[in-house]
Write a protein that binds this DNA or RNA. Structure first.
Lengths: 241, 241
DNA sequence: TTGTGTCTGTACGGCGCCGTACATTAATAC
DNA sequence: GTATTAATGTACGGCGCCGTACAGACACAA
């Protein structure tokens, strides 16, 4: 079998100059990320950053009573574990693999020393962090004002942007956990979308058929986040190599 | 009249070493921040960072239909305008003075070059940024799961922590805008708290009487944020000078 | 004192989501 | 093919907040 994964599939790594990439690449280790794997537990010391290539990671906060809510998602556009270079070494949230796939991990000490060179890598990571902040802020807004249906659209679009295909492996139960709502609420919203011909789903597989229409039905939150990622990280579109 | 404000009243500035403080202080300019003043408009280029001393600033997102939601608040524990050193230069949110008072502002170019020295100031600002991220994340969680009453408690406590007194000048209408709920919802919640003897209010003045009990009634979100600020910025308690 | 505007209190129908319970259908194992 | 489990569908009462409307109450100015 040939190599199915390559660090450059991650947009941040792909945006690095050759000199920096070559410095880091020997220490980037491929990891398989199965659905449901917990990469960080709340409050735990972080030992690695993860650069997803085909996997998607969900950052979520789990409350004392077990209820949860997603804070942000990280896919091939970014990196998981910003607290390491931000200086906190840990966060009160959990990180779980939301969509199985691959990623590359790098030891905390190594990303820290790279960050501390205060060069292009630092600038890139900080810009990404700001984009992530926008995503979190917009999640707060969306949770306050929008319906489950709108939030489902946002969630599907955000996930889709981080995948190669238009199909996601995801039960409604898991989506409900991410959004912090009842599973039945997701069922109803998904049914509506299916009846409208925007998606098709069955037992843990969701296929997006009409993406443009999904964007129409979605609240503005998706667009705000997307625009901000595009603005802050234009390299995601191959401008810088 | 004597000087009523001093940059060291801001905890971040206070945590600086003398050498760094002396470098910055000539460029720190005192500004009065009246209630309601808009410091940043959504999407606008930022020209200054603000270090509040007695004022409190609210970061909020205003939607297309005019509805709003608070993302985070910044008081004497922090700094407004992180996008400047994070590299984005702007954010999709608005910054409004939520509680009148004073602050010091510093030109964007100056904070940037200070940040780019990649020394203790950078580390401090990044740790603060991580604390701010926690606040935003927890706002998302709180919006999803908690009642208006609980959120009001959280909001009061967060504001109180950033003020010298136990009295805030704030109409219920404004609080409602921050929380992104109806004014009537705030009225009802506030009435309950008053009847329970935790607060007293009248026409834009709110006095907190029983703070411990307020913490009991509050959801866990306040505690999580508070703990994270204390953990990341212990200098706020005078450990580092 | 009287007016005027601001702030707070109260009420009512409606909607969205919750909690709960259980039925149905598809995949998997034996 | 049959049993078992996982995933999805449906139903129903209840609660919290919304949108709207309007009534008091207080502050300040004329």
């Amino acid at each position: 079998m040939t190599i199915v994964s390559n660090p450059r599939q991650n947009h941040l790594l792909d945006a690095l100059l050759a000199s920096e990439y070559d410095r880091l690449s020997p220490d980037l280790h491929l990891v398989t990320l199965p659905l449901g794997q917990v990469l960080y537990e709340s409050g735990e010391q972080l030992h690695y950053v993860y650069f997803p290539t085909t996997a998607i990671i969900s950052m979520l906060y789990v409350m004392e009573d077990g209820a949860s809510a997603e804070i942000a998602i990280v896919g091939n556009e970014g990196v998981l574990g910003i607290s390491i270079f931000m200086g906190g070494d840990t966060t009160p949230s959990r990180a779980v693999v939301q969509s199985a796939g691959f990623g590359y991990r790098l030891k905390a000490t190594l990303i820290k020393s790279e960050f501390n060179r205060a060069g292009p890598v630092q600038r890139l990571l900080l810009r990404y962090t700001q984009a992530l902040i926008t995503q979190m802020a917009q999640t707060a807004v969306c949770n306050r004002h929008h319906t489950v249906e709108q939030q489902l659209c946002r969630w599907l679009l955000l996930s889709l942007d981080r995948l190669a295909s238009n199909e996601l492996s995801m039960t409604q139960e898991l989506i409900a956990n991410m959004l912090g709502v009842r599973r039945e609420g997701v069922t109803e919203a998904a049914k509506k979308l299916q009846e409208a011909g925007l998606i098709k789903y069955s037992r843990g597989k969701i296929t997006v058929i009409d993406r443009p229409e999904l964007e129409v039905l979605c609240c503005e939150c998706y667009g705000v986040v997307k625009q901000e990622f595009d603005r802050l990280l234009p390299s995601l579109h191959g401008i810088a190599k």
